[in-house]
Simulated scan of single mutants.
Amino acid sequence: MAINLSKGQKVDLTKSNPGLTNVIVGLGWDTNKYDGGQDFDLDSSVFLLNSSGKASSEADFVFYNNTIGAAGAVEHTGDNKTGEGDGDDEQVKVNLSTVPSSIERVTFAITIHDAETRGQNFGQVSNSYVRIVNGDTNEELIRYDLGEDFSIETAVVVGELYRHNNEWKFNAIGSGYQGGLGSLVKDFGLDA
């Protein structure tokens, strides 16, 4: 049975699941009906961060146009442009055992594509979540539902996998940003 987390909660991943190496990070969302006349396109992205909390290069920014990172240990499986249907809208596969030691945190974000132009924000998005699944057994291990109402934010850092004493843990962050993907990219040390 999956552990349901609240914002700010941290949980051990590999210590309580010995032998766990392959995980799937599933991200999901639904968009509310509104009269903006524009479709929503939410995107998941991954920032591979060093000990100072920064991405070392653009190669450490994994998303639908750069689907492989961390020397092949992190793989974004593709862009879902509608978010329709049940289950995960986008997924990222992570092989914990092959993530280079220079990467201490694998941070997951969801952004709204072209949000400012389209007049969209996370206040118009519901049922957002991130979940960690055992890639070998398909068992859901951790789930974090972002129940918060982000009324003006256009990007949300949902959570991160991080190393601690040679074990991997998960932190449910749920931190909203204005300025969309561009502000996240800058915060993580890359030029927009």
Rank of each mutant, 00 (worst) to 15 (best):
V62P: 00
V25P: 02
T21K: 15
E58H: 12
A55H: 01
S56N: 13
L96G: 06
Q91M: 06
I24E: 05
D41W: 10
V23I: 13
A59G: 12
G78L: 08
S102Q: 07
I24M: 07
A73Y: 12
G37K: 00
T82W: 03
T31R: 14
D88H: 01
D88Q: 12
E75C: 04
N95Y: 08
A70N: 06
L96Y: 07
V23K: 02
S51C: 03
P18K: 05
F63Q: 01
E84R: 09
N95C: 00
P100N: 11
D79M: 03
G83S: 09
D35C: 07
A55G: 07
S102E: 12
G78C: 06
L96D: 02
E84Y: 03
D60N: 14
K33C: 00
D39N: 13
D86G: 13
V62D: 09
Q91V: 04
D41E: 10
P18N: 09
D79S: 05
G26T: 03
F61N: 04
V74P: 02
D30F: 01
N80W: 01
Q38P: 00
A55N: 01
D30A: 11
K54V: 11
N22K: 15
G28A: 14
L42R: 11
D41S: 06
G83H: 10
G53R: 03
Q38N: 15
G72N: 03
D89F: 02
N32A: 13
A71N: 14
S16C: 11
Y64A: 12
V99M: 07
S52W: 00
D86I: 01
G72I: 14
T82Y: 03
Q38M: 10
S44K: 04
P100L: 14
D43S: 09
V46C: 10
T14C: 10
A71Y: 13
G85V: 04
N32C: 05
S16K: 14
D88C: 09
W29D: 09
L96P: 07
A70K: 07
Y34N: 15
A55W: 01
A55K: 03
G37I: 03
Y34P: 00
Y64M: 09
D39I: 01
D79R: 01
T98P: 00
G87D: 03
D39V: 12
G53A: 06
Q91L: 08
G53H: 02
D30R: 09
Y64R: 06
F63T: 08
G83M: 10
G26S: 14
N17Q: 13
N80V: 06
I24G: 01
L96K: 09
N95D: 15
L13I: 14
H76A: 04
A59N: 14
S57M: 12
Y64C: 11
V99P: 01
G28D: 11
N32D: 09
L48Y: 03
V94C: 08
S102I: 11
N80R: 00
V62S: 11
K93Q: 09
S44L: 14
G87V: 06
T98H: 08
S101R: 06
V92A: 05
L48G: 02
N80P: 13
N17G: 10
L27S: 06
N80E: 08
G85I: 07
V99L: 13
G78H: 10
G87K: 05
G83T: 08
